[in-house]
Design a protein around this nucleic acid. Structure first.
Length: 381
DNA sequence: CGGTCAATAT
DNA sequence: AATATTGACC
């Protein structure tokens, strides 16, 4: 009577235990990130074992809320300022997702992926002058307000901004450029230098480039704001942005560069939706199936969020829509920008300019120098 | 000007 | 090693 039944149950238990143990092994590496999961699984195993050994009806996980506490998945698609944490942090963030499926082999590359733009202060190193920028709201050097409209921090508790250590000055003559204290937005970049060195000619080895200027959260905020006003990162031009930002000392090139980076990152870093065709996305925990944390980044409609960046679980920005796996349509998305982006079909000269051969990583157009050159348009929607 | 890409600095 | 910035070129 119950024998068969019992035996069967026993066997099932055994199987469960094994499965659970395997799972536990898998998440073992995430111990720090998913302490609860580990604990629950462990308990489940114990419970089953107890059941096996006789003590029946042991109960435990009535409702294992194994949800990741990580779910900072708030639709905060804001910009993307991760704000670098200070040096010695208390503990790493807890970006854990992907309870994964039961077949993963060796792919935990915990995305410690840094988020781009991890600057800390407005302008780094300004030995003498506090800062510049004359905007309505002053920005203290170390101020990382996590106000609503501002940067969002993917994960990780906000840390008071760390002051940037004076790690600059590496090269002999530092030759800072800024000095213009109050020339608001010198247009055209004609005003900033007071007659010093406008361009750094690579002569006798001095002058490392310019000092790198950090894009503080604030700065970036303004950047985004400007972007928004201008209608998106694809329509805004560096100059316009710079003017809107009204940040003194900011040059066109800097904005340009930042814009570039922004566009780049804003594209589509969310290939995270790689599911294994086989394994269902559920994990068996103590008899109940719990859906792994999934991030459904959808909310994007509201234009409230500045531009196109959405927080991705990784801490990188997720562009919103998930474009096809192939680098075909950059499509940056978002709210309203998707109108023109055809102006980029320039540099498709089939030949390289000087001696450089290919940009290695940067490749925008898949078909660069192929025979057919019809790819230009490529935006067949 | 604005966009890319190579070269560097971190 | 990977990124972030800067500089040079179309």
């Amino acid at each position: 009577m119950i024998n068969d039944n019992h035996t069967e149950k026993m066997q099932r238990c055994q199987e469960y235990i094994e499965a659970l143990e395997e799972e536990r092994r898998k998440i073992q590496v995430f111990q720090r990130e998913l302490p609860l999961c580990l604990e629950l699984v462990t308990r489940a195993i114990d419970a089953y074992k107890q059941q096996l050994s006789g003590t029946s009806t042991e109960y435990f996980l009535g409702q294992s809320e194994c949800s990741e506490q990580t779910s900072s998945d708030g639709p905060v698609l804001e910009e993307f300022i991760p704000i670098k944490r200070t040096s010695d942090d208390d503990d790493d963030e807890q970006q854990s997702h992907n309870s994964n499926n039961n077949d993963n082999k060796n792919n935990e590359k915990l995305s410690k992926k840094s988020d781009w733009l991890r600057s800390v202060q407005l302008w780094n190193q300004s030995p003498d002058q506090p800062i510049v920028e004359d905007t309505p709201k002053k920005v203290s050097v170390m101020e990382v307000k996590r106000n609503g409209g501002g940067a969002f921090h993917p994960f990780k508790r906000e840390k008071s901004a760390a002051i940037a250590p004076p790690l600059m000055g590496s090269s002999p003559s530092v030759v800072v450029q800024m000095a213009a204290a109050s020339s608001t937005t010198e247009t055209g970049g004609s005003g900033s230098n007071g007659g010093g060195e406008s361009k750094k000619e690579e002569k006798g080895g001095d002058s490392q480039r310019k000092a790198r200027r950090c894009w503080s959260p604030e700065l970036h905020r303004r950047f985004l704001h400007a972007l928004k006003q201008l209608g998106g990162c694809h329509v805004a031009t560096p100059k316009q942005i710079r003017e809107l930002m009204k940040v003194d000392g900011l040059t066109n090139d800097e904005v340009k560069s930042h814009l570039q980076k922004y566009r780049l990152h804003t594209r589509r870093p969310s290939p995270s939706i790689h599911n294994n065709p086989q394994a269902p996305q559920f994990v068996l925990v103590g008899g109940i199936w719990v859906p792994p944390p999934e991030y459904t980044a959808v909310a994007a409609t509201t234009t409230t969020g500045e531009a196109a960046g959405a927080a991705s679980p990784n801490g990188i920005y997720a562009p919103i829509a998930a474009p096809p796996p192939r680098p075909h349509h950059p499509q940056a998305s978002a709210t309203e920008t998707q109108r023109q982006q055809h102006k980029q079909s320039k540099q498709l000269h089939s030949d390289e300019r000087g001696s450089h051969s290919e940009g290695g990583a940067h490749s925008n157009s898949p078909a660069t120098s192929s025979s057919t050159h019809t790819t230009t348009a490529s935006r067949a929607l």
